[in-house]
Amino acid sequence: MNIFRFAGDMTHLISILILLLKIYATKSCAGISLKTQELYALVFLTRYLDLFTDYVSLYNSVMKIVFIASSLAIVWCMRRHPLVRRSYDKDLDTFRHQYVVLACFVLALVLHERFTFQEVFWAFSIYLEAVAILPQLVLLQRSGNVDNLTGQYVLFLGAYRGLYIINWIYRYFTEDHFARWIACVSGLIQTALYADFFYYYYLSRIKQDTIMRL
């Protein structure tokens, strides 16, 4: 464990908690893609299949449970909470994410570290996390609604990606056998997609602020 990865995990967790608290406090999920949140929950559920079989550390196990619980809590809120679900942009959040799930699974069957049940699902979760932001990006382009996507959410999400890339660079230079190509290449693609999301986010922010001022 290095400080970059620890900080990356913390900023990732904070970004999820910020979104969950924002939805719960405002009882609204307008502008938030349920499909992206469902993909995130699927990412954690398929990545942490080793929760009960491989013990890395108490921190690792606790964080896995927290990530699974918080991402499922967001999905539950958006699907089941009587007030929140009414504000869901159902007719705008129409990205066909099932094709993305299928494509990632096929890729995981072809490209993985070892052909075992857990490893294929681990690779699947890595690929899926990279593209999970797409429904949210499309919804943002369509709705331009940034009410619930606070600046802090975007800031911590960006910090998570940046810190993880620094973590990989650090591990590459300090550990002799560090070669997590699947995670690194997929993580770089994910960061590029996040940069695109941040670009549209700030465009929407500026547009919304301009309208507010007029």
């Binding site: 464990m1 990865r5 990732h12 990545r47 080793d50 690792n60 964080m63 990530f67 681990w122 056998h177």
Partner: peptide, 10 residues
């Protein structure tokens, strides 16, 4: 070795 195969990153 076995530890190498376990994914230690979240």
């Amino acid at each position: 070795d076995e530890t190498e195969n376990v994914h230690d990153e979240l």
